[in-house]
Simulated scan of single mutants.
Amino acid sequence: MIYDIFDQIRYLSTVMTLEPGDLLFTGTPSGVGAATGNLLKVGDVVRVEVDGVGVIENRIVQGKSGA
Score class of each variant (00 low, 15 high):
R59L: 00
V15F: 06
V15G: 08
E49D: 08
M1L: 12
T28D: 07
D44P: 07
D44I: 00
V50H: 00
G21V: 09
V42F: 09
D7L: 15
V53Q: 07
I2N: 15
S30E: 15
D22V: 10
G27T: 08
V48H: 01
G27E: 06
I9E: 11
I60F: 01
V55F: 04
G31E: 02
V42G: 12
L39P: 06
A35K: 13
I60Y: 01
V15I: 15
G52M: 04
E49Y: 06
E57L: 03
G37E: 04
G54A: 05
D22L: 04
N38A: 14
A34C: 11
K64D: 13
R10G: 12
L23M: 08
L24V: 15
A34M: 12
L12Y: 11
L18V: 05
D4M: 04
M16D: 05
G66Y: 00
G33Y: 03
D51F: 08
A34K: 11
L24R: 02
V48R: 10
Y3E: 04
V55E: 13
V53T: 10
V50N: 01
G31D: 07
D22S: 10
Y11N: 14
M1K: 10
G54W: 03
T28C: 14
N38F: 15
A35Q: 12
T17D: 11
T14M: 06
I60S: 00
V48A: 12
S30L: 10
D51H: 11
E49R: 13
R47G: 03
L23A: 11
V55N: 10
L24Y: 05
L23N: 04
N38D: 14
G37H: 03
T28G: 05
S65V: 14
V53C: 11
F25P: 14
N58W: 13
Y11D: 12
E57Q: 12
R10K: 15
T17F: 05
Y11T: 08
L18I: 08
F6M: 09
V53H: 05
S13M: 02
V15M: 07
S13C: 06
L18A: 02
L12N: 07
F6C: 10
D22H: 15
